[in-house]
Amino acid sequence: MVQSILDAISLGGLYSLAALGLGLVFGVMRLVNFAHAELITIAAYTLVLTAQFPLAVSLLFTVIVTVFVALLMEFSVYRRLRGVNPAIMLIASFGLSTVLQRVYELMFGALPRSAVVAPFLRGDFKVAGLSITISSIITIVLTIVILLAMGYLIEKTSLGLQLRAASADFKTARLLGVRSNRLISAAFGLSGVLAACVALILVIQNPQISPYYGLNITILSLVGIVIGGIASLRGAALGGFIVGVVLSSLNTLLGNGRVYAYSWLFILVLVILLVRPGGLLSKGSELERV
């Protein structure tokens, strides 16, 4: 029971990190970056392929590689699509996602790559007679730390202020001097850092990396940011958290019926969207044209 609650919270936290990465980029350029999945995947590959080095080195290397790929996406594709209909951008990101999946397949093979990352985080310990996995605790702690850091960055720094302003009204923000290219690159860079964090947590739990490794969590986080309210980063994080908690709880509660957990989750999503089309944290009923 305690373990189930911890699992739900840790999955929720993980999804909110992924959702935050998507939300940052969406905010500044109205792009739903489906290829965020491939950022998580490349981070996971890097972690596994550098597992022989000390964790800190491996992590640093992972962040560098992931941020590099994120910026590469921005420079090579998305920069040229700015201002285009968001639907077209979304479809382009689908295309980019496929390209990267196949590139990973050519580079790393279709079969999963695996290595033991941070073995000291495996296993479980006992508290008051209850057995609790270390990874669930680590996940929760890591998530809280990362969310607090992101919260500070977004609420208290100049970059965060510019990100919030640009998310609300990019045109006016530019009139005030917000440099569009730099800010969008920064958003992509940050989403890369977040993808690396997500990958770290995922890899501790499941170190079998295939070219589609990041797909599932990205799709579900996308669902999350929409139900949370895509207009705000808080909404994105909240939505991701809800999806994670609901999915984890469904898996526990449904027993043998857990193969249908996704169906129940999606039905819940539909209900939430029908009641609040703009997401849980939206104000009023703005018509958003995406």
């Binding site: 202020l161 919030r164 609300a168 001097g177």
Partner: peptide, 15 residues
């Protein structure tokens, strides 16, 4: 920026 505070709006002017 109606969601930001007056102070934050002014700070944006500094950019």
């Amino acid at each position: 920026f109606s969601g930001l505070t007056v102070r934050e709006n002014l700070s944006l002017g500094l950019t």
